[in-house]
Design a protein around this nucleic acid. Structure first.
Lengths: 261, 261
DNA sequence: TGTTGATGGTTCATTATTTGAACCGTTGGT
DNA sequence: ACCAACGGTTCAAATAATGAACCATCAACA
């Protein structure tokens, strides 16, 4: 791996729970030498990608990422274009809508919208990383990935997050087959107990999913009516987002969704 | 300069006007060897910072920057925290409000809000880079920078963007003195003919400005009443944003702003 | 149809940069 | 007063970056 890769990997050590990282801790986490870490960090600091803060001189992500993200959004209005649809979806279903994108081997939540309808709702966080096997969004995406990539992701450890999390690759494969047949994924309590969710894969061009659109709600609120409402609204919203992105869903999937509405 | 710096500099070659850049062009723009460019780009691509797209295999900013920006925002809610204030400011003044942050030697617009009041308004773009000498936001920030940094920025070329752009460092220095005395900056037609704007510096801690809050409007709408309204609203909004950021404006500046309201 | 010039991408000997153990100066706790 | 942890620095040794020359491909053009 080249020097640049090492530097960029350092950026991935920042998480929401660990927004500030000191030099030594960074070296420990990355496995790199402290001096190497220091050089990489100062180099990234000079470009504003990270910044040093406070008396402890800890590092955190810098303001340059905001500019880059704004630039990316004007070039490819992924988040901004989907935001209104997401809000409408939350309003129409009365539940929490969220949009996740695939980034290599990670599934990252990049936007979400709440509904004011109910006091209890499923809360989300930006930049959350969702497990492939235990969320409806993860299953929706992974089901519509080329077989090789799907198997690569299934070959990784599948942690049992709750009592009902499916951790057997074989069983999971069967579920993904079902997802592919229905055009959407549904999970109940596999990620967080009491939370249920429905998700549809999102496409740009070709048959490969690039992300997912989901609605999550407290499982105790689940009724056939609510579910069919959510499926219906999701199908419309997903089609709309794909359209806004200038993409196209595979004909087979589009047909499945039409039946939902 | 290290390898990492070179790679990150490649990211800065992407602009709104040039969202897609091919390999050869990138080498040309950066002055690096084509092979070097290619290696740096593929390495950044493997981390999602850039992506390759289309038949021409051109490069553009990748989805990873969205995740990083979202993470930065949860750690340091710069944009999201200021957004409501910005919208209120646009509503109260009836004009275009915008927020810019200093990133090293650049001043970058990271958010803005329009008012529906008038059909004609000053339009803005995310990730715009503002010239220090020709915008009220630039002057507001540069006036409240340590002398050494101010002089470094004044020593660079100061392009004449319109007929009335001040390009003489000496004259500019005098203007900045005035800005410091008044606590805000005002320019008319120095960036774009027909556009007028007022801006206040933003502080985090200490006397060094980290950004600016501005309101821009068509010069032909300018009246003493509008100006005093804008100054008043700006003072309140700037104080609010600084407070939301957990910062503090220098006592002298805070006093000047209080007189405006 | 063959030529030209552009593109993205690859190779490999040369070269310059990265690397890391050991070091320094501070700080905070015991 | 001590110790351990912190951020940061040094410099010879090791490794990774570099770039001229090279393909393959494509589009325009004669």
């Amino acid at each position: 791996m080249g020097t640049v890769g090492k530097a960029l990997d350092l950026l991935n050590l920042f998480t929401r729970q660990r927004a500030l990282v000191g030099l030594s801790e960074m070296a420990r986490l990355s496995g790199l030498n402290k001096a190497t870490c220091h050089r990489l960090l100062t180099e990234m600091e000079s470009r504003g990608l990270v910044e040093q803060v406070g008396a402890a001189r800890e590092y955190r992500l810098g303001p340059a990422v905001l500019r880059l993200a704004a630039l990316r959004e004007t070039a490819v209005p992924t988040r901004d274009a989907a935001m209104p649809v997401l809000q409408a979806l939350a309003r129409a279903t009365g539940e929490t809508a969220h949009l996740s994108l695939r980034e290599g081997d990670k599934l990252v939540t990049i936007a979400f919208a709440y509904s004011p309808t109910h006091a209890t709702k499923v809360m989300m966080e930006d930049a959350d990383i969702l497990p492939w096997h235990a969320t409806s969004s993860g299953q929706a995406v992974i089901a519509f990935l080329p077989e090789a990539e799907r198997e690569a992701l299934l070959a990784r450890p599948l942690p049992r997050l709750t009592d009902v999390t499916e951790t057997d690759p074989g069983q999971l494969r069967a579920r993904l087959d079902a997802v592919r047949l229905r055009g959407f994924a549904e999970t109940t309590g596999t990620f967080e107990t009491d939370a249920q969710s429905v998700a549809l894969p999102l496409f740009l061009n070709g048959d490969e999913a690039v992300g997912a659109l989901g609605v999550a709600f407290p499982a105790n609120r689940s009724t056939p009516d609510l579910l069919s409402c959510i499926r219906r609204e999701l199908a419309g919203a997903a089609a709309e987002i794909i359209d806004l992105w200038g993409g196209q869903s595979p004909p087979g999937v589009a047909l499945l969704w039409q039946r939902l509405t």
